[in-house]
Amino acid sequence: MALTHAEREQFLAEPHIAALAVDAGAGRAPLAVPIWYQYAPGEEVWIMTGAASRKYALIEAAGRFSLLVDRVEPTIRYVSVEGPVTGTLPATRERLTELAARYLPAEKVAGYVAFAWENHGEQLIVRMRPERWVSSDLGTV
């Protein structure tokens, strides 16, 4: 059964690991990789990725990407969202902390942020406006 507008936005706002997919060019399947993301209902989705990464180069070339999030407990549920890139800006330590705090236990955030900020190279925030949604709750199949 498809989720309501409010249900799908709330589900996407939860801290699931997303599968990001982006066109990888002629003769290639789309690039699909796990990624952390941030979303609040009614707003744009944003991700953080390396400025020199293949993922970013493909997103920049395609001008759009999709995210798929799912779970299997307590019911099988998923939300897929696709849309255009609306902007890219340099990552900040504050945004990295926000993202890490979404996924990591509180006591691990500062250590992760310090390591990532020093070792992951130049990072960018890529914003996407959700245009197309596909969602379902399959119940307790």
Rank of each mutant, 00 (worst) to 15 (best):
R71F: 02
T92A: 06
A106W: 12
R102K: 15
V81N: 01
S80H: 05
P84R: 15
R64Y: 09
G63P: 08
Y103I: 09
E82T: 11
E107G: 00
G83L: 03
P130S: 05
V79C: 06
A100F: 14
L89Q: 10
G83H: 08
E98I: 04
I76T: 13
E98S: 07
V72Q: 01
A101Y: 11
A100C: 07
P84E: 12
T92V: 12
L96C: 02
V69L: 00
R129A: 13
R129P: 06
T88V: 15
R102W: 14
E107S: 05
V79F: 13
V126R: 00
R93D: 02
E107T: 00
A106C: 08
G63C: 13
G121H: 14
A116C: 09
V85Q: 10
V85P: 15
G83V: 01
R129F: 04
P84K: 12
G83M: 00
P105Q: 10
G87V: 10
R64C: 11
L68W: 00
T97P: 01
A62E: 03
L89C: 06
A116S: 15
R95I: 01
V109T: 13
A61V: 05
R127Y: 07
P105N: 10
E82S: 04
T92C: 08
V85Y: 07
L124Q: 12
T88P: 09
M128I: 11
A100S: 14
A100W: 13
P130H: 01
E118C: 04
F115P: 12
P130T: 02
G83Q: 09
D70Y: 14
L99H: 12
L96R: 10
E107A: 00
L104M: 10
A62P: 06
R71D: 00
Q123F: 02
V79H: 06
N119E: 08
V113W: 03
P130F: 09
I76W: 06
A116D: 02
T75S: 00
L124R: 08
P130L: 07
P84H: 11
N119Y: 13
E73S: 06
A114I: 10
A101G: 15
F115N: 13
G87F: 12
V109Y: 11
W117I: 00
T86C: 08
